[in-house]
Design a protein around this nucleic acid. Sequence first.
DNA 1: GACCAATCGTGATATATTTCACATATTCAG
DNA 2: CTGAATATGTGAAATATATCACGATTGGTC
Lengths: 205, 205
Amino acid sequence: MRLKRVVLERLMRYHRFLSQTTASKPIQTITSAQIAEALDIDPTQVRKDFGAIGLVGIGRVGYQVEDVCCAVRTVMGFDKENPAVLIGVGQLGGALLTYPGFEKYGLSITAVFDSDPAKTGRSKAGHTIRSIRSLKPYIRKHDIMLAILCTPVEVSQTIADRLVSVGIKAIWNFTPTDLAVPPDVLVRDEHISLGLSEIAYHLKQ
Amino acid sequence: MRLKRVVLERLMRYHRFLSQTTASKPIQTITSAQIAEALDIDPTQVRKDFGAIGLVGIGRVGYQVEDVCCAVRTVMGFDKENPAVLIGVGQLGGALLTYPGFEKYGLSITAVFDSDPAKTGRSKAGHTIRSIRSLKPYIRKHDIMLAILCTPVEVSQTIADRLVSVGIKAIWNFTPTDLAVPPDVLVRDEHISLGLSEIAYHLKQ
DNA sequence: GACCAATCGTGATATATTTCACATATTCAG
DNA sequence: CTGAATATGTGAAATATATCACGATTGGTC
C-alpha cells in the first residue's frame, strides 16, 4: 500500500534520530520504546511504521539500526539520483543552492533559471543562471521530473503551468501560493507562513 | 476550545486565498463552496472551520470576505507585535532576515546573534550581529518569547536549552534536529528534509 | 407576499489515525 | 532445561478528522 504523508514524516524522524544517535555512540540495535521515548511517539506507532516498510524486529532485542536506516532510505528513494531544476534565484533560491544536505537524499540541482535578464549568464554557487526561456527545452532534453520553485508570487502559477505542460512530476513550492496542478503532479508546499501561524497562535495563548 | 494545527493551517490557506483573490478583483462576499473548490477542500470543512473562529455566514450569500480575513488575523494573533531573535546568521538565517513577509504577521526580528567571532559586530540586512554571549541578557531585558533557530546542527540543542532556561516560549526550528524541550515550549520544525522525503517517494512511484 | 433556489449550520455517519491489550518470540539466569 | 523478563506484531478499541444529509435561513422573482 502507498504510504501516507504522516508515515513518511515519521520515518524521516526515525532516520534522523538514528543517524544522530549512532554518530555519537555506535549501537547495533534499538527498541521501539527507545525511539518512541526520544521522539515522543507511541511505541506501537513505531512498530507499525516499521512493519509497513517490511522491517522485522527481534523479540527482547529490538531492531538492527543499520537495517532501519537502510530500509528508510530505500523506501524513500534516496538511493536514486533525482536531478532537479531550481527556478528563481532570489534570496531563498540562493540559500537553497548552497544547502549542502541535498545530495544525501539523492537530490542534485542540475540547472537554475531566472527571468531577470540582469541575472542570466551570471554565476551563483557554481551554477550559471539560465534564461527562463530555456526552461522547457532543458527539462525535455534531460527528462527532469522535479522543479524547485522560488519565484515571486506573481509568476508562480504561470511557471507552474509551464512546468506541468512540459511533463514535470513534482514541484517543491517555496512560494506562498496555492498552486493549481493536475492530480498526478505532486506539489509540496514549504510556505513558512504556515509555521508562523502556529507560532503566533501559541504565543497569543 | 484550542484550535488544532490542521485547522490553523487551513485558516491560513483561506486567508491567503482571499487575500490573493481580492487583490486582483475586489469582492464583498464569498461562499464556502467557492473557497472549497479553489483549495480542493470539502465545503463543510470550510464552514466548520469558520464556525470554530466565530464567523457566521448569511444564507444564500456566504461570508463577508473582510470579516473572514479579519477574524483569521485576530485568532492567529497577527495583530499583536511579536518581537523575535534570530540565532545563526548563515545562508538560511541571512535569507530569513531579508524576508519581507514577516511584518504582515506581526513578527519583527529585533536582534540577531551568532557564535562566530568573525561575524559579530558586522552588519547584515540592517542588523548588527551580536555575540551569542549576549543572548540571555537580551532576551531577559526585552522579554522576548520567540527565537528563530538557524544554527548548525551540532549546537542547536545546546542553544535550545539556553533559550528554554531564559524563558523563551516558542522556537522556530530551521535546523534538522529533533529538539527536546519542556511541554510548555512550542517547537515548530521547518526541516526541509521532510518535504524532500515526500517528493522523493512520489518520484519513485 | 409566496414560492423557489442557494447557502449556511450542525447532528449523524464514515473514514483515518492512534493507542491499547495481549499472544508470540527471544534472551538470560540459575 | 526451565522460567522470568522484555521485545515484537497485530487485532480490537478509542480517538480524531472529514464527509454526508438535511433542516433553517436568506435573497430574488413573479
